[in-house]
């Protein structure tokens, strides 16, 4: 019935896990965000077909699902890289040079904000304060915070991945 029925076994098993997740949450007030959160973890991102699948299973309109997805910057509708780079643009990081880091990364990675490199290695985002003001300017790659970044240090860091 949906696109996933024609897709790979890997995709199917991901859709199955998402369906199980929905069964756990369905009917509970405010559970859509939980489901989307989990679905993004399982599938990596939230493309239209997956949003339709979730809308159908949760019995909410697609426009509501996509409304939530597009409201929160955490959700992505495009495939994401293996590693997610988040540059902190909170006040402290901003005044200590966060903006230069962002510009440097835009140039080095050759992607837009929110974009993913052609090799699928990195997705580049900015974050509001990540609570590491003492380490400003800070960036996060996946779950690790890197402190006092400079363009040179960023290069060194990226080369490790």
């Amino acid at each position: 019935m949906y696109a996933y029925t024609n897709s790979s076994t890997e995709d199917k098993s991901k859709y199955n896990s998402i369906a199980n997740l929905i069964d756990l949450h369905k009917g509970r007030e405010g559970s859509l965000i939980q489901v989307l959160h989990g679905a993004q973890k399982i599938y990596g991102y939230l493309p239209l077909d997956l949003q339709e699948f979730i809308a159908d299973k949760m019995e909410v309109p697609l426009s509501k699902v996509s409304g939530v997805v597009s409201f929160y910057s955490f959700f992505s509708v495009k495939p994401r890289g293996q590693h997610i780079i988040r540059v902190c643009m909170g006040t402290a990081c901003y005044v200590r040079g966060g903006k230069e880091i962002v510009e440097h990364l835009l140039d080095t990675l050759g992607v837009e904000l929110g974009g993913t490199t052609a090799d699928g290695k990195f997705t580049f985002e900015v974050a509001r304060c990540i609570g590491s003001c003492g380490l400003a300017p800070a960036i996060m790659i996946d779950d690790v915070v890197y402190k006092q970044m400079t363009p040179a240090k960023v290069n060194t860091l990226l080369a490790k991945f």
Binding site: L62, S63, S66, G67
Partner: peptide, 20 residues
């Protein structure tokens, strides 16, 4: 009860419409 139109995005980018 059809739910075709709902707010999408946020802030200045908010539009009312079908999703995606």
């Amino acid at each position: 009860g059809t739910g075709i139109l709902n707010p999408q995005n946020r802030g200045f980018d908010t539009v009312i419409g079908p999703g995606m």
